[in-house]
Simulated assay, not measured.
Amino acid sequence: MRAIRGLWRWRHNPLRRGTDLAEAWVALVALILIVVAGPVLGIVAGSLSRDALYRSVQDQHSKRHEVTATVEKKVSQPPLDPDPETSTARDAHSRVVAHWTAPDGSAHRGRVIAALKTPHTGDTFPLWTDDKGRVTGRPLDRATATTHAVLAGFGAAVAVTGLVEGTRRLIVWRMVRRRYARWDQAWDIAGPDWGRTGTGS
């Protein structure tokens, strides 16, 4: 709004300099770009990210499978957080030796992290594997993918806003430097006695 008020104020002002009007126009263009281009690019970036993430979700769900693993024994390990007062949700997981059957029917055994606080031999827990039974991470869900896409769009909009504002500030800084340089030249031409001109000295 300052840019619009600046343009209106300088429109017919006899003291208006060309640089004043140019600065107001730069501010107005920057404002329009921030209000229009920022959100548009944010929406485009968010949509592209969402589409890519949804394809990843679909791909992961087709290649990762939840199987049931059975605990054989607990593996001794130091606690994830030695201070019981600051323990986190990670302490609810234990490292165990377990066996499971892959989606292709093959049997597997190995050390894995179980979502069990106090595992005992014979306890079962869910485990994500690929088609051949290799342990993988839990597949991405659509809600998380949507959240990531929204954050990507918001980040793109903020980046565009920052770029536009940074460019505006750089342009105005260069214009002010040029104005000061012209003032210095004018002072040099006027000389040190400009105030006594016509006094007969």
Rank of each mutant, 00 (worst) to 15 (best):
P78V: 11
P79M: 14
P79Y: 12
D81C: 14
D83E: 03
E85D: 14
E85H: 05
T86K: 03
S87P: 03
S87G: 13
T88I: 02
T88C: 02
A89D: 14
R90E: 13
D91C: 09
D91R: 03
H93L: 12
S94R: 08
S94Q: 06
R95E: 09
R95V: 06
R95F: 08
H99W: 06
H99K: 09
H99E: 04
T101S: 09
T101E: 12
G105I: 00
S106V: 05
S106C: 07
H108C: 02
G110V: 13
R111P: 02
V112H: 11
V112K: 12
I113Y: 10
I113E: 10
A114I: 02
A114H: 05
A115K: 10
A115V: 15
L116Y: 10
K117I: 06
K117C: 07
K117R: 11
H120T: 14
H120N: 10
T121Q: 11
T121C: 00
T121N: 08
T121A: 12
G122H: 05
T124V: 04
F125L: 01
P126G: 04
P126L: 10
L127P: 12
W128N: 09
W128R: 09
T129A: 11
D130I: 13
D131E: 07
D131T: 13
K132P: 09
K132L: 06
G133L: 04
G133Q: 04
R134E: 13
R138M: 15
P139G: 05
P139N: 04
